[in-house]
């Protein structure tokens, strides 16, 4: 029985290993620890966003604003640091607060006015993207020493491989989220609400607080992802991270989280992000394949995973009957 619950995650991990093995067999220089680390380096921001999204989706909602939030964070950071000369030590906490507040606001509207999360976060997406352009229509490049240091610093691991600071931030977020999801009342309430909001209410769980916190957390994650993205791009731009919301949702679903809510794993999301990274890496190693194949393959994977979830939930129902 427990196996059934974990099956989507097992499939995700298996798929990742399979793809990585296939890549290693086919391409020279693919099979190395550094390649995996590079996956993390390139997708640290996606990982952080996806962790926040996992909570939202498990709670039965969705957050379309994440990509725009990343862009807004890069824009605000760049503008304040570069054009107004604010110290990064002030700017980074500030943008994190901004992201959280943004998420909080969306969560409050979703909960108190009972408007579909889809629509509210859609408005949030428009708003955040639009605010980027209010700040500036053009790219703002950052040459602040703190940001460049953060971008260039390589942390050497035992064995000689290196990762960026962003990766460490992302991994800390993943571990914190794992704890949050499985060992705190907040985390369990999120699962309970995703299972049945009505029941959770009658069981006396703090629905309002939990739901609003979920979006606040997602807002926090996406602004943190925005900070990491700023390190990565060293610029602020209104067109940064366009379509990230889709990549994020895809990663979460491929990671075994049910879009209907109630079931999902942060660990699964971690591998969901890695699978997306592996696809990109394989396509870049292949050379002749163009980048749009990534989208097609991810679409295909989405299809397969959704079908798998369907089959599993159909089986689950049968199990109850007998």
């Amino acid at each position: 029985m427990l196996n059934r619950k974990y099956l989507p995650v097992i499939v995700t991990v298996g798929l990742f290993l399979l793809m990585f093995a296939a890549g290693s067999l086919r391409y020279d220089g693919f099979f190395s620890f550094q390649v995996i680390l590079n996956l993390l380096i390139d997708n640290a921001y996606l990982l952080i966003t996806a962790v926040g999204m996992t909570f939202v989706i498990v709670s039965g909602g969705i957050d379309l604003s994440v990509g725009s939030m990343i862009a807004l964070t890069t824009m605000v950071s760049a503008s304040l640091v570069q054009e107004h000369g604010w110290p990064p030590g002030v700017v980074i906490p500030l943008v994190l607060c901004m992201g959280s507040a943004f998420g909080w606001l969306m969560g409050a509207i979703i909960h108190y006015f009972k408007i579909q999360p889809f629509i509210v976060t859609l408005a949030g997406m428009f708003l955040a993207r639009g605010l980027c352009y209010v700040i500036s229509l053009n790219t703002i490049t950052i040459d602040n020493p703190f940001y460049t240091t953060m971008a260039q610093t390589k942390v050497r691991l035992p064995g000689g491989d290196t990762v960026s600071i962003s990766v460490i931030i992302a991994l800390v977020v993943v571990i914190a989220a794992l704890y949050l999801a499985h060992y705190t009342r907040f985390g369990r309430s999120v699962y309970a609400i995703g299972g049945s909001e009505q029941s959770a209410l009658l069981m006396g769980l703090p629905i309002a607080r939990t739901k609003i916190l979920v979006y606040t957390f997602s807002g926090f994650c996406s602004s943190l992802a925005g900070v990491v993205f700023t390190f990565y791009m060293l610029s602020g731009y209104g067109l940064h991270a366009v379509g990230t919301e889709l990549d994020t949702i895809a990663a979460v679903v491929i990671g075994g989280t049910l879009l209907t809510g109630g079931v999902g794993f942060v660990a699964g999301t971690f591998f969901g992000v890695l699978i997306q990274g592996v696809i990109q890496t394989i396509i870049s190693f292949e050379g002749t394949l163009s980048s749009w194949w990534t989208k097609i393959v991810i679409g295909l994977l989405l299809f397969l995973f959704i079908l798998l979830q369907r089959l599993l939930s159909a089986k689950g129902r049968q199990a109850v009957r007998t």
Binding site: A123, F126, L127, G130, V134, L137, G238
Partner: peptide, 11 residues
């Protein structure tokens, strides 16, 4: 581009 902001409020 600022249409987006207005759209957000309209939504």
């Amino acid at each position: 581009e600022i249409t987006l902001v207005v759209k957000a409020f309209v939504v």
